[in-house]
Design a protein around this nucleic acid. Sequence first.
DNA 1: AGTAATACCTGTAGCAACTACAGGATCAAG
DNA 2: CTTGATCCTGTAGTTGCTACAGGTATTACT
Lengths: 144, 144
Amino acid sequence: MKKSFPDRPQSDQLSIGRLASGSGVKIETIRYYEKIGMMPVPKRSTGGQRIYSQAALNRLHFIRRCRELGFTLKEILLLLTLDATADRSCNEVRDVTLTHLAQIKRKIADLKRMQSVLSKLVVQCDSGSAPACPILEALQPANA
Amino acid sequence: MKKSFPDRPQSDQLSIGRLASGSGVKIETIRYYEKIGMMPVPKRSTGGQRIYSQAALNRLHFIRRCRELGFTLKEILLLLTLDATADRSCNEVRDVTLTHLAQIKRKIADLKRMQSVLSKLVVQCDSGSAPACPILEALQPANA
DNA sequence: AGTAATACCTGTAGCAACTACAGGATCAAG
DNA sequence: CTTGATCCTGTAGTTGCTACAGGTATTACT
């Protein structure tokens, strides 16, 4: 009775390949996520291949976006479980995000310091005023 | 004739512990560096314990500073061999550094983007104007 | 229906740059 | 001479993947 396409049995039945191309997460990474418990264990075809639902795609999207924003998998798992818990978890989500934001700010500050140090060294290098390489000299413990 | 201290046999003879405390690099890390060829194989005492020279301390210092500036071990090894090669290696050192600087700039830009996205989300959260958690919603693929 | 080209499977090992044991041996000091 | 600190080797864990190898399933085409 159901007019299901043979190649796309149901619109919410996805092979791992489709899930990968649909989410921008590589196949190996999806299997890895399954292994470490980031993604639930999916159904299998009679031949043993993984079959995913739309919900899996949503979850993967969420994970990918969070990763792009620099969240660790642990943090993302926390966000996902908070999401499932629902209720007044908003504050906790906000806390996770704020903590993460603080880390980002620290990293930016660190990188800027590096940038400034290295830029100065390169400028000295460019001026060609030094007899030896000023970069190497600057990194030496002293002129021992 | 030499008035050498028993606990510091020669001023340039260092145990791995002293090398560690003197350089700020942990003992395990020093052994790891030896294993992967970042640090040369040191002499040993009759009992088999590692004995380092001042030169080893200098090298470790150099490595640590470069690490603090975000260079990878591979890059540092390159810098060290360039240093040994001496000659007109200054340009090559400059190239390594410039490449690294470009990477740093890219990282800063990425982090700033993250920061801006996350900050906006938290602000929405703070306003309390949303019915559900705006952070989680924003990360969802759509309002499916 | 047959066959070839994909796509998928499991399991393992590798990457960077360490860190953390376990289970001993050695060394310095009282 | 004994205690306690330091050191030894070797292995496994961390994070977040990626890359095989060697085999099975599915799909597309004729």
